[in-house]
Structures are given as structure tokens and as C-alpha cells.
């Protein structure tokens, strides 16, 4: 449509990241360095993922849903988890509490993802004359993705960094992490396998992201209790 529309969509896509950073204590503790490191790790992970996808995946002519290919794609998607693991445990962070660390990593991760996947289509498309809802939906998707990333980072920090957590919660944490990590495959299945339209998929993503955020919050809180 116009530059105005582009600005609107950009605000929707990238605004929440900035708001999250400035509203939470992340800004007080100056965790931007951690977020940038996480973003760099994300870029490297994305590169590795691309190489893997190009190597192992066939290019399908049709848009149909192929379970085997999707399974392969999902397993390649777990490279993300490895990247996140690296960002959470291997990177040296200046005295930052675990609490803030996972948020900073998740934020950097989500922001890098938005820039990498959404900025270019937005720039190419949203300034065009034709009005579509796609870019607004894409912005909403970026919001959902931010929540997913932070949830995953929270679960990751529970899994890898917290030593004394209640034994009963461990399987739940792993299950939740598994669900969040496979979310891209789930949405791709909804879109192609079930033929859902984009708005419906985005609605599902928003809903499930909030649900997962709530669950991981509860898990995090539950794990924090004995330590405090």
C-alpha cells in the first residue's frame, strides 16, 4: 500500500521486541550484549539449518504435505534447540541472573528471527499498492514467535541451568520444550496438511503461544520455589 502501511506493519512486527526490552528489567541490567550474542548464534544456527535443509530435503513441486519430508524438516528444526543450548550455556555472560539471561537470549533469538524472515518481505510487499492482510498477519505471527522463543528459552534454562528442580516436573518440562520446539512443524502441518488459511494459522499460533507461555511461567515459578 504505502509507506504508512509499511510503518504500521513494521511497528507490529518489531515493536513488541523493543517494548519487551524496555519494559522488563532487561533494560535496567543492560543485557543488550547477551541479546546480540543470542542473535548472532541464531544467524549461525539459521545458516547451518539452511545447509542441512538444502542437503537433505527434496524440493517438492506441489504444495502438498509429505509426512516423511516434514519429519525430516522437524528434526532439522531441532538444530534450533541446539543453538539455543549453546547460547544459554556456552556463552560467557557478565554477571546476569538466570532469570534475565533466558529472557535476553529469547528476545535476541526472536528479534533475529523476525529480521531474517520478515523484514525483507515486508519491505518488498507492504509498500506495494495492493492492500492485503498478509503483512499484518505476519506481524501478529512475529508476536507469537516472540512469546514462543522466550518460552523455549525459559524451558531451556530450566532444563540445562537449574540444578535443583523438583523431580516430578522434569518430564513436563521436557514435554513442553518438545512441543514448543516442534511448533514450526505443527503450523506447517496445519497450513499444508489441513489446508488452514493464514489467518486461522496465526490465530492458532497466538493462542498456543499464550498457552505455552502460561505453562512455562508456571513451571518456572514452581522450580523457583524450592530454591528461594
Amino acid at each position: 500500500m504505502t509507506v504508512f502501511h509499511f510503518i504500521n506493519c513494521a511497528i507490529l512486527t518489531f515493536g513488541p521486541h523493543a517494548v519487551y526490552y524496555s519494559a522488563t528489567p532487561l533494560s535496567e541490567y543492560d543485557t543488550i550484549g547477551t541479546s546480540i550474542k543470542a542473535a548472532v548464534v541464531y544467524l549461525i544456527t539459521a545458516l547451518v539449518k539452511l545447509v542441512c535443509l538444502a542437503t537433505f530435503l527434496n524440493v517438492s513441486e506441489s504444495d502438498s504435505f509429505d509426512p516423511y519430508q516434514e519429519l525430516l524438516k522437524a528434526s532439522i528444526g531441532f538444530i534450533d534447540v541446539a543453538g539455543l543450548y549453546f547460547a544459554l550455556t556456552q556463552l560467557a555472560h557478565r554477571n546476569i541472573s538466570q532469570n534475565h539471561k533466558f529472557q535476553a537470549v529469547g528476545l535476541g533469538w526472536a528479534f533475529a528471527d523476525s529480521v531474517l524472515h520478515r523484514l525483507a518481505p515486508l519491505w518488498m510487499g507492504a509498500r506495494g499498492l495492493e492492500f492485503t492482510w498478509d503483512y499484518i498477519l505476519q506481524g501478529l505471527e512475529a508476536n507469537a514467535n516472540l512469546v514462543f522463543s522466550i518460552s523455549l528459552a525459559a524451558l531451556g534454562s530450566l532444563m540445562w541451568l537449574r540444578k535443583n528442580k523438583p523431580k516430578t516436573l522434569i518430564p513436563i518440562i521436557y514435554a513442553c520444550a518438545g512441543i514448543v520446539a516442534t511448533m514450526p512443524s505443527i503450523t506447517s502441518y496445519l497450513r499444508q496438511g489441513l489446508g488452514w488459511h493464514f489467518p486461522k494459522v496465526v490465530g492458532f499460533e497466538l493462542f498456543s503461544s499464550l498457552a505455552m507461555a502460561f505453562i512455562s511461567w508456571q513451571l518456572f515459578a514452581a522450580c523457583q520455589r524450592p530454591s528461594s
Binding site: F131, W133, I136, L137, V202
Partner: peptide, 11 residues
């Protein structure tokens, strides 16, 4: 979004 989705079609 849901209410207006039917409007969108390509150029």
C-alpha cells in the same frame, strides 16, 4: 482480521 479477510485478493 477475521472480519476483513474475505476482502483480500491479489492485484
Amino acid at each position: 482480521v477475521m472480519a476483513c479477510v474475505e476482502l483480500c485478493d491479489a492485484a
